[in-house]
Design a protein around this nucleic acid. Structure first.
Lengths: 187, 187
DNA sequence: GAATTAGTAGACCGGTCTGTCTAGTCTGTG
DNA sequence: CACAGACTAGACAGACCGGTCTACTAATTC
């Protein structure tokens, strides 16, 4: 038997990746189980509320993971333009390396469930709020005035999200760099 | 019996709306049939390739519909900032009036099918390309230099797409206006 | 070492999925 | 009127869906 708590994590990580690639309705719990190697009983033991809980926690996990990676990239950057470029590079690399199957880990699920599932939607909202807070802090650190940091963070997050989606559809990351370069000019 | 050709259109329009709200995998053909009042035989007569064809044509239809609405809004605007505001208003109104269930009619399907369905993905790519062309033309009309119009159109489309998604998740359209206002400042 | 708890294992269930098939009905044409 | 093609109509099929259930095994506690 696998060590305590390991199965839960394996299920969750597998689910997060599948939801990122295929979305909520495109991913079946049976597929999550097959790829993680866990039996069905374990899933409903660790996630008694089923697929909905699995998706909510996957979104939260992805949000934290990406948030941490972005924070790291931002802290390592000497100035704003470099920081924006680093963020863009992060997503561009993820897209390229996955054959354009791994874009934003939250967007697909967020759009699919926005109309009919408050629980998952709330998890998506929380994740985006955290990213926004991180971005605001980074912008202030780069010398953006207090009252401009909020709207600018929203613009940066919006355009990045849109660019990641367009890049995925066009199978070409150049739109991401195009966008981050223009955002850098704004700083 | 319904007049010739009417059933096909009714199915298509119903499908387009359901795909917009619920995405590809979240929408069943049975639901499309129930809401359009058509029998199953008619669907597979008019769309012999089934759900995939239905989605491709729905995306194309939505692309043309929204594209036309945007062109109209743009042509009616006296200058760039007003045009951007009009575009933002269009999506913001659609979101508000539908209780935040109708965002971009293409984005959800595009993200869901990007990884595993080339046909639908190509239809999404075509629709976005048309929007981009329209935006480029509008920007040039507003006095943006030739070499800046391309990247700027990409930035406008990206940030709009992202803003529509964020607005849907947060159930608040203000991010859309925040974004269009900052884009207007760029012109 | 017995009892208890935590977790694994997968057969099974009702329902829903997309898609097929046959039968029937309408409409335009000679 | 007869006929042909266009279209409607929905029963049906097989696969798969999320979720439940019982049986089991490993680890912990007394």
């Amino acid at each position: 038997m696998a060590p305590r708590g390991e199965t839960r994590e394996r299920i969750l990580r597998t689910a997060a990746e599948l939801f990122q690639r295929q979305g909520y309705h495109g991913t079946g719990v049976n597929q999550v189980l097959a790829e993680s190697g866990a039996p069905k009983g374990s899933l409903y033991f660790h996630f008694p509320e089923g697929k909905e809980q699995l998706a909510s926690e996957s979104v939260a996990l992805s949000g934290r993971t990406v948030g941490a990676a972005l924070t790291e990239a931002v802290l390592a950057a000497p100035d704003g333009p470099a920081g924006l470029a680093a963020i863009g590079d992060h997503f561009a690399r993820s897209l390229r390396e996955s054959g354009f199957t791994k874009g934003c880990p939250i967007a697909t699920v967020a759009l699919e469930t926005a109309a009919d599932n408050d629980t998952i939607q709330a998890a998506c909202g929380t994740a985006y709020d955290e990213w926004l807070r991180g971005l605001r802090a980074a912008l202030r650190g780069w010398g953006v005035p207090e009252d401009r940091a909020g709207p600018l963070a929203a613009l940066v997050l919006s355009s990045l999200q849109g660019a990641i989606m367009l890049a995925r559809v066009q199978r070409d990351v150049s739109v991401i760099h195009q966008v981050t370069r223009q955002l850098a000019d704004l700083l």
